[in-house]
Write a protein that binds this DNA or RNA. Structure first.
Length: 489
RNA sequence: GGCGCCAUCGUCUAGCGGCCCAGGACGUCGCCCUCUCAAGGCGAAGAUCGCGGGUUCGAAUCCCGCUGGCGCUACCA
């Protein structure tokens, strides 16, 4: 280990993307990955992929592999990571827990952290009381007064506890954000964050700092939402006596209403973009447009908005980034994608269509849903059309059940969205999710199934709903629901 | 509520003290091309540069205040 590290000079640029495997790969992850990749390539540095799987309650088994596939699909390749290895392996945080525990002990010994035995219920109660008194909800530090020896004894005796950061009671922490300049937080406004959870896993704050240091990350390029927790990270670096990386907080991608981009208001799954037929080069190009960064247009515009990853590596300037949160405008993405589609040769276009809209596996999954319903093969799309369309909209009389009105239907659709988001994507799970939903909103199962059918297929008669949903996929099904919601406002 | 960040057409942005009564792109509208629809070409509407104070001969550009938006405020990242 020691020898390996010496190979890297202190000045070498090393950046990382640190996604958490909690669901579909996110478009925001792609955006930050792109920025990190460009930064590394411009400086002959290394781009690291680290999996932050420290939240076992939100862990999704298939997520890690989907992250790899989605980023590779976009052409955003990393130099080091769990799947490709590297000199600082392991790159999966769940495999580094001993390291975090050791570091937490070190902080405890130095008095920079302390054990806290408060239960979830106590914390909940504390928060409620603070809110009621119009005070900022913060940990009141009651366990900070515990003698360390006693705390250690209770922990050793098996009492559940967490380790919290002992934020200085007075003073302030100032750090430099490379895009914004100096930012200061009074310590009075910084909470004694949990660093090590009672299940032994670290929180983001500890793991992130320890790993960034261990992996010799020189520049932390991450989303703006992290600015307010940066003082905690700086305090940790100082407690360990480590040098600080440079921080670059990128603007947050936004929904139409300017809020942080979210799945309820926008497709955010990279799976969706792939399945809906966006070309990776177009999506990467579009993400490159977010926040500026490319040189100013010259006389002839048009081509200045169209560029490749290589162009970005050659010309992107981080100093040019505009800090206002860019709205992720699907309309413009579609236009750009159209530009890329038209630029394809006939052969490339043919291949893209075959690979994306009628791949064998998809067709094979669709066929059984149709086979017993048709008399000639030409009727295939009479039944399967909805599985190949980008948009399908039911008429109002198809969508809204006989005994219900639009308002109730909209409510049901919202609930359906939530149910589809959290259900496992297989026939049995979807069946019980829909039936549970019916109970919850006081609709008959039949009404709920017909509602879902109308949204998915646009019709009252279709192949079986559950199988159709499974084949069509979560990302696109949710998109269809979202569009229906938007159309029946 | 507290703390922090941000602020140019509906949207993405150009602009970094005079060249700007603000340029380009998406979207919208109109015209042309055309068997249709796209694509393409041409054109139009669209921003008192959030508001108010300064600084300066001169401010979208610098400073301050206000307002607004957003983020964070978890044993989530």
């Amino acid at each position: 280990m020691r020898c390996v590290r010496r190979l890297y000079s202190v000045s070498m640029v090393r950046v990382r993307i640190a996604p958490s495997p909690t669901g579909d790969p996110h478009v925001g992850t792609a955006y930050i990955a792109l920025m990190n990749l460009i930064f590394a390539r411009q400086r002959e540095g290394k781009f690291v992929l680290r999996i932050e799987d420290t939240d076992r309650t939100r862990f999704v088994e298939t997520s890690e592999r989907m992250i790899y596939e989605a980023l590779r699909w976009l052409g955003l390749e990393w130099d080091e990571g769990p799947d490709v290895g590297g000199p600082f392996a392991p790159y999966r945080q769940s495999e580094r827990t001993a390291l975090y525990r050791e570091r937490a002990e070190q902080l405890l010994a130095a008095g920079s952290a302390y054990r806290c035995f408060c239960t979830a219920a106590e914390l909940e109660d504390m928060r409620r009381r603070q809110m009621a008194a119009h005070l900022p909800p913060r940990y009141d530090r009651r366990c900070r007064a515990l003698p360390p020896a006693e705390a250690a004894r209770r922990a050793a005796a098996g009492e559940a506890c967490v380790v919290r950061l002992a934020v200085p009671l007075a003073g302030a922490t100032t750090f430099r954000d490379e895009l914004r300049g100096e930012i200061t937080f009074e310590h009075a406004n910084v909470d004694d964050q949990v660093l090590l959870k009672s299940d032994g896993y670290p929180t983001y704050h500890l793991a992130n700092v320890v790993d960034d240091h261990e992996m010799q990350i020189s520049d932390v390029i991450r989303a703006e939402e992290w600015i307010s927790s940066t003082p905690k990270h700086v305090l940790l670096y100082q407690a360990f006596g480590w040098a600080l990386p440079r921080f670059w907080h990128m603007p947050l991608l936004r929904n139409r209403d300017k809020s942080k981009i979210s799945k309820r208001k926008n497709p955010v799954s990279l799976i969706y973009y792939r399945q809906a037929g966006f070309l990776p080069a177009a999506l990467v190009n579009f993400l490159g447009l977010m926040g500026g960064g490319m040189p100013a247009p010259s006389a002839e515009a048009k081509e200045v908005e169209r560029f490749t990853l290589a162009d970005m590596i050659a010309q992107f300037q981080f100093e040019r980034i505009s800090l206002g949160g860019p709205v992720f405008d699907l309309e413009k993405l579609k236009w750009l994608n159209g530009v890329y589609l038209r630029a394809l040769s006939p052969e490339e276009f043919f291949r893209a269509v075959r690979a994306n809209v009628v791949p064998d596996e998809y067709l094979r999954a669709v066929c059984p849903l149709v086979q017993e319903r048709i008399e000639t093969l030409a009727q295939f799309f009479d039944w399967a059309d909805f599985l190949f369309r980008d948009e399908v909209l039911p008429a109002a009389e198809v969508l809204i059940p006989k005994q219900r009105d639009l308002a109730a239907t909209r409510k049901a659709m919202e609930a359906l969205a939530a149910a589809l988001e959290s259900a496992d994507w297989n026939k049995e799970a979807l069946d019980s999710a829909l039936r549970a939903l019916a109970d919850e909103i006081g609709w008959s199962a039949k009404e709920v199934f017909m509602l879902a059918r109308a949204i998915l297929t646009g019709k009252k008669a279709s192949p079986p709903l559950l199988e159709s949903l499974v084949v069509f996929g979560r990302a696109r099904s949710l998109d269809r629901l979202r569009r229906c919601l938007a159309a029946f406002r």
